[in-house]
Design a protein around this nucleic acid. Structure first.
Lengths: 197, 197
DNA sequence: GAGAAATTCGTACGACCGTATGATGGTATT
DNA sequence: AATACCATCATACGGTCGTACGAATTTCTC
């Protein structure tokens, strides 16, 4: 038995929370799709909201680490930021449910989960710092570094969130690897253009 | 009595649907905050999801019309698009609940509501057409017009969705009119930079 | 001002929710 | 082989959900 029950629960939960939101996803829907008993969530996680937090951590922690790593390299600021954008797309391709969950969390009126606040705050701060460097060396145009960082991050998030709108309006299906590559290239070019001095 | 009960229901529903999502908002929560009877939703709208659709229409129809109007003017493409971005911010300031609801709808796995699909599809198509004009006259850089249009629209949507992140990371509270103005200027500059040839 | 129409009200219903509990099965340790 | 332990199971509980329904009340019409 290579995959344990709790792993199946995590996978199904990630999918359903992304598709239908926290309140729109019942424990019964999760356990039945995971071919587990109704009590499996309580047994393995204690409560539904703990499972949700585990899903969030599973999505956010690796992303934060990879962004960290990408910003550590000794390269020009614009190159660093492009690599962050690529990391975003790469992470999203591996975890297609991420944008929906993140964005739901941001839209929520309730205080955002700790893991998300931490990861986003940290990454946003690092991005803003790199943008500040670029402004100092003249490679990036003037402007509030935090707002510029958000304008950059908006590209991978929104372009993935709008998958269906893109498919409907331009006939581009991002599940097709070729199309996905084109969208990534578009996003990196756009971010560079948006930052360039 | 200038404001009828159904108006109060619409207002409260818009607020709560934005804050807690469709499933996170109970009919009881709506009616009690609107100082109405539990049955008021059924009586005035027939069902909860009809009230939700009414909220969507209330948010989207005026926006679509204003985008239409802004793109009708005889001005250079870049100026038209900047005016669309300003229309977005203006509409969002008047309806602060819009980004959260729109984005939830996009994140939803269910087929998007007709009013949203229509308005967004139309506006996106018009924007892409204007971008095509700009590419033809050399004022806008090359690239898929639909993707470029989405990259533009992402700015007002995401910058408003990230209000709390902005407040936390940069100490900028967009409820302050001065700050809001700065964010709008940032967004218009960013969109121009992102499109410029 | 009486009657009709529109609205608000209290209440009830069945369905589903998240969670708790004790029984049951399988597996490793001694 | 007996025991302890972990995982899964069926089931039940109190609570909340959206909606239905008839009575009470307000508002409009003549």
């Amino acid at each position: 038995m290579t995959e344990h029950c709790s792993d199946r629960l995590l996978g199904v939960a990630r999918e359903l929370f992304a598709k239908n939101g926290y309140d729109g996803t019942s424990v019964r829907a999760i356990t039945s799709r995971a071919k587990a008993n109704l009590s499996a969530v309580t047994y393995h996680f204690g409560a539904k909201h703990v499972l949700y937090s585990a899903v969030l951590a599973l999505l956010m922690k690796p992303l934060g680490k990879r962004i960290n790593f990408a910003l550590l390299a000794e390269r020009p600021p614009l190159d660093k930021i492009e690599s962050v954008v690529r990391v975003f797309f790469d992470h999203i391709r591996a975890n297609p449910d991420m944008p929906a969950i993140i964005v739901r969390e941001m839209a929520s009126g309730k205080p955002v989960s700790g893991i998300i606040a931490t990861t986003m705050g940290q990454s946003l701060g690092q991005l803003a710092a790199v943008i500040g460097q670029g402004q100092a060396d003249g490679s990036i145009r003037a402007g509030d570094p935090t707002l510029l960082a958000l304008s950059c991050v908006a590209q991978p998030i929104y372009l993935n969130l709008a998958r269906r709108a893109i498919a409907a309006a331009a006939g581009l299906d991002q599940d097709d690897p070729g199309v996905f590559h084109r969208v990534v290239e578009h996003a990196t070019l756009t971010v560079r253009a948006l930052l360039r001095a």
